[in-house]
Amino acid sequence: MTEQFEAMPSDWTRALAIVAHPDDLEYGSAAAISRWTSEGREVFYLLVTRGEAGIDTVPPGQAAALRESEQRAGAAVVGVTSVDFLDHRDGVIEYGPALRRELTREIRRRRPELLITLNHHDTWDGRTSWNTPDHRAVGRAVLDAAADAGNRWIFPELAAEGFTPWNGVRWVAVNGSPHPTHAVDVSDHLERAVRSLLAHRTYIEALTDRKPEEYCRALVSQATSEASARFGGRPAVCFELFPR
């Protein structure tokens, strides 16, 4: 018998979602975020790049502003009004202390109980579907920065800048992981998830020959249906949860 997902924790009020590119959250977490904001929880977005290398037919200089605009629109659909960018170059994010420091600063600034990120593992399926270097670098840096944020002796210069230690991160939730453990019932939030993904229309039109609306609806339906088999038959978004 397939092991069932546990329900995601609900005793929190503030989350910070940190991913590499515009659309990373809309391709997986948006329905869950829609539910959380509708319940009165506060969710902030932090994008490490502006996704300027993501559209083959649009030069990076034009794509950056376009993708930023689409990301803000997609976030607004699911109740997120705060969207920040770190300006790393798309496709060549480097994991290391510099990235951890930036994420630590933002965690201390937002002081979340829950961090949300995208798959940090080498593959998407646990076998041969290779993940991108940006996703791996950012996901791993988020997991590390969750601890860095609470340690006054790591990046002590941040305290001098006003970013005092925050040891209140209780979980890191990784979407798109090949090893999910928890899920969120999103039965009432599928339509908002579709519209949130559809906000990335320029990106999607360059990605597929299908009609954007059809593409988005099929993707959200498939993803939440696959998770439902391990969550009591309810449409769900799943995460690999790392408690702290």
Rank of each mutant, 00 (worst) to 15 (best):
S38W: 00
E39D: 10
G40D: 02
E42S: 09
V43A: 03
Y45D: 13
L46I: 05
L46W: 01
L47E: 13
V48D: 02
V48P: 07
R50C: 05
G51Y: 00
E52Q: 12
A53Y: 09
A53N: 14
G54I: 07
G54T: 07
I55C: 08
T57F: 01
T57K: 10
T57D: 15
V58E: 09
V58R: 01
P59L: 05
P59V: 09
P60L: 13
G61Y: 01
Q62K: 14
A63F: 01
A63L: 06
A65N: 14
L66Q: 12
L66K: 09
L66R: 13
R67D: 03
E68K: 15
E68F: 00
S69M: 11
E70R: 12
Q71D: 08
Q71E: 13
A75T: 04
A76K: 15
V77Q: 04
V77Y: 00
V77D: 02
V78F: 00
V80K: 10
S82H: 13
V83I: 00
H88I: 14
R89C: 11
R89W: 00
R89G: 09
G91R: 08
V92R: 07
V92G: 02
I93Q: 03
Y95R: 00
G96P: 02
P97D: 11
A98K: 10
L99V: 06
R100Q: 13
E102P: 11
E102T: 11
L103P: 11
T104S: 05
E106I: 02
I107M: 02
R108H: 02
R110E: 06
E113M: 03
L114I: 11
I116T: 02
I116Y: 00
T117L: 04
T117V: 10
T117F: 03
L118E: 10
L118D: 05
H121P: 00
H121F: 14
D122H: 14
T123L: 06
T123K: 02
W124I: 09
W124N: 08
D125L: 09
G126V: 04
R127Q: 11
T128F: 15
T128N: 13
W130G: 00
W130K: 06
N131T: 08
P133D: 01
P133T: 04
D134I: 10
R136C: 07
R136Q: 12
R136H: 04
A137F: 06
A137L: 04
G139D: 03
G139F: 04
A141I: 12
A141E: 10
V142G: 04
V142H: 06
L143F: 02
L143T: 08
A146C: 02
A146S: 09
D148W: 04
G150S: 02
G150N: 12
N151H: 13
R152W: 03
R152I: 15
R152G: 01
R152V: 14
W153R: 12
W153L: 14
I154Q: 14
I154R: 14
L158I: 09
A159S: 14
A160F: 05
E161D: 07
